[in-house]
Structure formats: structure tokens, C-alpha cells
Write a protein that binds this DNA or RNA. Structure first.
Length: 198
DNA sequence: TCATTAATATGAT
DNA sequence: ATCATATTAATGA
């Protein structure tokens, strides 16, 4: 979700800068803040027993994270790591709740946002369970696209490396590369240099 | 800039 | 799916 930064500031929001590859929070920590990205990129990940990384999501400008835990007392289920120099605004939980009470319109918006995530999440889970790698990639792309505001046909740029796509879908890099080629042939996606347009 | 590392692409097992 | 290797892009000393 994307909340007016001025409002965030007026409720105790503060700007925090992170260097590339810096932890913003770690799995198992207590959730304290609502985070919204001003610029940069953040990934949410966990590691399997054998040390393989699984990326849950990658967020960019004007996107938020840590928000599903605002209303419940649970520990973070993932790490949050900046992929590049990243500027975020963070608002303490209590202030965030205060803000929603004083701005019912915002509260509604937050509800819509969370609902939309749930919706696309269920689609995502279905596709990721599919054996067909094309379906898995397509599921991921639809999911990522749902986070994107300005949408038009075949011009949503996927700013991910193949390795990151592999870590998001649980596929191997080689499989991702080969599947992407197939999808270009089937005109499901387009390429602009090495970047994918969907 | 040049050297080193990361990412991409393809072929083989 | 895993491994090996060649090419290309990105990074940083």
C-alpha cells in the first residue's frame, strides 16, 4: 500500500536509510513498525534447512512491508533485506493504529490492500503448486503485476534477475532461463534486452 | 580504467 | 535436476 508520506510523518514516521544487503528486520524478531519504501528495493526471504534461499517477495517504490503483522502479535516470518541503497519510512505500530482511527478513509484503503494481497496470494499458491514451469512463472508474474499500479498490456517491466525469479518460484536458474525463452516464443511475454515485459 | 565477481545462456551427464 | 563452461554485464579497487 502507498500512504501519503506527510501523514506518516505526522504520526511519528521517520526516514531510515539502508545500505545494500542490510537487514531491516530478521525472522523471529518482534514486529514494531509499518514500513513503506520511498526508494530502493527490499526482499523478504527465509532459508531452508540446507541453506537454500527462498524469496517470498521483492518490493519496490511506494510499497509497504511488515504490514500484515500490524494487527496481530506475532514474530516476523521472514527476513527483510535491502537489495540496494534504500530509503524507507517507518511508523511505530501504535502510531499506525492511531492513524487509522483518525483517518477512517485510510483504514478502508488498508483493508482493500490487504484483501487484494490475500486474493493474489491464493492465486500464487495455486500456480506455484503446478508442475508446469510456465504456469509457475505466469503465476509469479501475475502476482508481481498486481502490486504494480500503472498497468498496460505487455509493458510491465520485471526488474528481477533470473536467479531471483528462481528463488521466488523454487525453480532452478537454468529452468527459469529456458522457460522464459519458451514464453517469449509463445508470446506470453516480451523481452527488452534482458528484461522481461509482461 | 582494468580486474574481479555476478548473471546469463547453452550443452552435457 | 545437476554440473560444467563460455559469454556478457556489473562492480569496485
Amino acid at each position: 500500500m502507498n500512504i501519503d508520506v506527510q501523514i506518516l510523518y505526522s504520526f511519528g514516521g521517520e526516514t531510515v536509510m539502508y545500505k545494500p544487503k542490510e537487514f531491516i528486520f530478521k525472522e523471529g524478531e518482534h514486529s514494531q513498525y509499518y514500513f513503506q519504501i520511498i526508494s530502493g528495493k527490499v526482499k523478504l526471504n527465509t532459508f531452508t534447512e540446507n541453506g537454500k534461499e527462498f524469496i517470498h517477495n521483492i518490493l519496490g517504490n511506494n510499497q509497504s512491508f511488515g504490514d500484515p503483522l500490524l494487527f496481530i502479535e506475532k514474530l516476523y516470518p521472514t527476513n527483510a533485506v535491502s537489495l540496494q541503497a534504500t530509503e524507507v519510512v517507518r511508523v511505530p505500530k501504535k502510531n499506525f493504529i492511531e492513524m487509522l482511527k483518525t483517518h477512517p478513509d485510510l483504514s478502508l484503503e488498508v483493508n482493500m490492500c490487504l484483501s487484494q494481497r490475500l486474493y493474489y496470494n491464493s492465486l500464487m499458491v495455486r500456480n506455484i503448486a503446478s508442475a508446469d514451469p510456465i504456469q509457475r512463472l505466469k503465476g509469479l508474474l501475475d502476482y508481481l503485476k498486481s502490486y504494480h499500479d500503472g498497468d498496460c498490456q505487455q509493458c510491465f517491466p520485471v526488474e528481477l534477475t533470473r536467479q531471483q525469479i528462481a528463488d521466488l518460484t523454487g525453480l532452478r536458474v537454468e529452468t527459469v532461463i529456458r522457460t522464459i525463452k519458451k514464453m517469449v516464443n509463445q508470446e506470453i511475454i516480451k523481452m527488452e534486452g534482458r528484461r522481461i515485459l509482461y
